[in-house]
């Protein structure tokens, strides 16, 4: 459809103003992370010189690199666990027929109603009693099972023609092999989407890493940022912002790359 000019102008105006407000905090942080401290303290908005000092200090004074590595490992672990468990469960719900399947499916739906935050106390005790505090395992284990991921993949698997399964049955291929050699490759796009989503959520996790880490050994970058913020003097805003930028950079890049797929995948998963 052809859009009248005035409508275009109004739209671009709305879009630009909105974009400014949405993006302002992040831009501000980015600018401040390069801005010399004196200028920050005087309330400058546009700096007249840039410096890398804050970044250097952030890395020097804090084990940021090790925090980043920890976050990466934990996020990858959670992502892999979720992909494996969700795809296995989704496979059972789509391709296997057995008594009690519907009851189990309701059990999965029911898990959506239990907030992790409400069951955090026993979870902490479990991990503590298993001596898993301050371990990658302890950080990632509670998040492996995932109802949302199961639903999302179930939607995708349902779109695979059942004839593919039947053809493989006639060829004498077992379920495990069909799952590995046909279902997973065919559903690659959705697996990537879910993986990105799982990675993002895991990277950004706050409450659990706060509880499950008591020292620097496996501390994630989010909790590192909290420490940076609470231990720094208030006039070290540049260092704090540099830390913030380092924390969001990986996820933002991932998001920019996968925005379209993520949107499609999440919408599909959300709306059965």
């Amino acid at each position: 459809m052809i859009m009248p000019l005035y409508k275009k102008v109004v739209l671009y105006l709305l879009l630009s103003v909105s974009a400014f407000f949405i993006f302002a905090p992040a831009i501000m942080a980015l600018v401040m992370s390069f801005m010399p401290s004196e200028q920050i303290l005087t309330g400058t908005i546009i700096p007249d010189s840039l410096t890398l000092d804050h970044y250097r200090q952030a890395f020097e004074r804090f084990p940021l690199l090790s925090y980043l590595t920890n976050s990466l490992i934990v996020s990858l672990l959670i992502m892999a666990g979720q992909l494996l468990l969700s795809s296995l469960a989704a496979y059972a719900f789509v391709f296997l027929e057995f008594k009690g399947r519907d009851a189990l499916f309701f059990l999965f739906i029911a898990t959506m109603m239990i907030p992790f935050e409400a069951s955090i106390i026993p979870n902490f005790q479990t991990i503590r009693d298993m001596n898993l505090l301050n371990t990658y395992t302890g950080l990632s284990l509670p998040f492996f099972a995932m109802a949302f991921g199961t639903f999302l993949l179930r939607q995708t698997f349902k779109q695979i023609p059942k004839e593919l399964k039947e053809a493989s049955e006639i060829a004498g291929m077992g379920d495990l092999k069909f799952y590995l050699t046909v279902v997973l490759p065919v559903a690659k796009t959705s697996l990537v989407t879910l993986g990105v989503y799982g990675f993002l959520s895991a990277w950004n996790m706050y409450l659990w890493p706060l509880l499950a880490t008591t020292d620097d050994s496996v501390r994630t970058v989010q909790i590192g940022l909290k420490q940076l913020q609470s231990q720094e003097q208030l006039n070290e805003w540049g260092v704090i912002m540099a830390g913030g930028i380092i924390v969001v950079l990986p996820t933002l890049i991932l998001l920019f790359l996968g925005q379209k797929k993520l949107q499609k995948g999440l919408t599909e998963g959300a709306l059965k």
């Binding site: 004839e163 593919l164 039947e166 004498g172 046909v182």
Partner: peptide, 30 residues
Amino acid sequence: LPPKDRHLSMVFQNYALYPHLTVEQNILFG
């Protein structure tokens, strides 16, 4: 008997070709 022990082949209406495999791999699937 399960399908694989009945010594038969089947052609489906929608052909049931594996989209991620080449023609060769599809033919050799069984």
